[in-house]
Design a binder for these strands. Structure first.
Lengths: 185, 185
DNA sequence: TGCATCATGTAATCAGTTACATGATTTT
DNA sequence: AAAATCATGTAACTGATTACATGATGCA
């Protein structure tokens, strides 16, 4: 139950339309919280009727008009309330782990290709995060001033980087393990 | 759409009742795929009507009878088919990351307690995994024989261990970052 | 002419969670 | 006497995914 909160954070960082939010959920925020545009439009409607967000019709020339959403007072309060209430660590869902254990009952080596594919995805994501890091956080801090928004975004990004590095290393391990069951090995 | 597959893998490792599966999903398998007993009973019923599993009524003395499920041929085939078809890396859901970015719009240091709580959970899980590792995989391999089931279970467990270590280290980083915004710091 | 992007939505279905319900045995 | 464990389920609800639907502009 935190898509609302993810949307609030994103709109506080920068107001935008449902479409823009959907694109952000494909990038930055989407790295730790996914949502499709259908979901976002539905939730935005609920948030609007709960007065968590304000809407502003923005006419555009050469493009369809858009509805720009921004966070209203009750939305900010809802976010504060959620921040101070404990939430449980999320349950993980790794179908690749299910496959690895399942491979014991089929041909383990046949899974190597799939593991390599996943590893490639993680390698790509890592490269993407690192590029984003040097683009957005490459400069040394502007004198002594601390910008909480910027520093905390960076901390989350470092988490993504650590996660991808961990996965790449673990999948090396998995590939080596699977290879030990190659027919004739 | 892989709860069925997680159940198939678990039943191949050892046949059991819905209740027993539910408990396994609280431990071992549950580390990378969660499910409640309600969900499991529902899916088992579907799998039974699809002939993926066989059921055997096991009378028990001093306890309610149970239905022991085991994997049938079509179930094994369904698992093989799934193993050889590509699946996308799972989307991550980290509400703590949403909270960290959200903290920029409230009191960042107020989140330290919550981060510590999460870190404690990961520390406990790590200890639990490491205990399981030395219990189940502590001995050197029984002569030269490779047991795929055992080796692959171990590889998945090593993934869990790597994940918890990564999280603990990252949450140290996050705590330090949040502390920089302490009022008067 | 066709495809991609911008922009918004509805409808149907599937998966997952929470609450409710029962009843025996075993442990504190 | 109460609480925990074993064992199985139904019902209601919420959340997420997939498919369908529209229509303009801009680019190749």
């Amino acid at each position: 139950m935190a898509l609302e909160h993810a949307i609030l954070v994103s709109l506080l960082e920068k107001p935008g339309s449902g479409y823009e939010l959907a694109r952000r959920f494909e990038r930055s925020i989407g790295y730790f919280w996914t949502a499709t545009h259908q979901q976002i439009y539905r939730v935005l409607k609920r948030m609007e009727s709960d007065r968590w967000v304000d809407v502003r019709e923005v006419p555009q020339y050469g493009r369809p008009d858009k509805k720009e959403y921004s966070v209203a007072r009750p939305g900010r309060e809802a976010l504060s309330a959620w921040l101070s209430e404990p939430t449980e660590p999320e349950s993980v869902r790794h179908d690749l782990a299910v496959k690895i254990r399942g491979a014991a009952f089929a041909d383990p080596a046949a899974l190597i290709g799939e593991v390599e594919r996943h590893q490639q995805t993680h390698t790509d994501r890592l490269a993407h995060y690192l590029a984003g890091e040097s683009r957005d956080f490459g400069d040394p801090p502007t004198d002594g001033l601390l910008d909480a928004e910027r520093e905390l975004q960076h901390a989350v990004l470092r988490g993504g980087i650590a996660y991808e590095r961990m996965m790449i290393a673990w999948l090396d391990d998995v590939r080596a393990t699977l290879a030990r069951f190659e027919t004739g090995g």
